[in-house]
């Protein structure tokens, strides 16, 4: 069944836009939330995405898009406030709690999110997911980082070079 094709922003209701994932799933969201994406913002300002058209997103699958929109919907009110300078401490704490929870996910989902945030240019989300990967590798040795991120095992020469560099440059390494 197709998503309802209403929501042109009439009758005081918020304007809605439709996004279409790579696997052809339609998502209907408030224009304000979708506009967190720099990529989508212009199209939406030009009146695109409304009605039956929908904006196709060939690089984002439905599982990822659904996750991305979860983020956008949560962050849209604060973003509409111009970065929410007036936000209360409670609001900020709630967003922070949401963000922490939000990136507590499987690594493959995390990588898909990074790509999507990058393609859609959603600044806050880009920063959030990059920080999450950074947190995963902080303080680890190069070898541990490789394992954590699923790199292939190094060749013996690479391993030897890494060990030598670690002694020379690796700082306070125990």
């Amino acid at each position: 069944m197709a998503a309802p094709e209403s929501g042109d922003g009439n009758n005081g209701a918020a304007r809605m836009v439709t996004l279409i994932s790579s696997d052809n799933t339609r998502f209907e969201v408030e224009a304000a939330a979708a506009s967190l994406s720099q990529t989508l913002q212009l199209t939406i300002l030009d009146g695109g995405g409304g009605g039956g058209d929908g904006i196709p997103l060939p690089n984002v699958d439905s599982a990822t898009l659904s996750k991305v929109l979860e983020y956008c919907i949560k962050h849209a009110p604060a973003a509409a406030n111009g970065g929410a300078p007036n936000a209360t401490a409670v609001d900020r704490a709630e967003l922070e709690r949401f963000d922490n929870e939000f990136v507590n996910i499987d690594q493959s989902v995390l990588y898909s999110l990074i790509m999507a945030a990058h393609n859609l240019e959603i600044e806050g989300l880009q920063s959030l997911v990059a920080k999450k990967v950074a947190d995963m590798i902080k303080g680890k040795s190069p070898m541990e980082i490789r394992r954590t991120l699923g790199f292939p095992d190094p060749t013996p020469e690479e391993q030897a070079e890494m060990n030598a560099h670690m002694l020379e440059y690796g700082w306070a390494y125990e």
Partner: peptide, 21 residues
């Protein structure tokens, strides 16, 4: 929120996300 739109479309397999990222 998301609803399947009619028939499934096959898409080319993207590279594994870890490599892409």
């Amino acid at each position: 929120m998301g609803q399947k739109n009619g028939k499934e479309l096959s898409t080319p397999t993207p590279p594994p996300p870890v490599v892409a990222v």
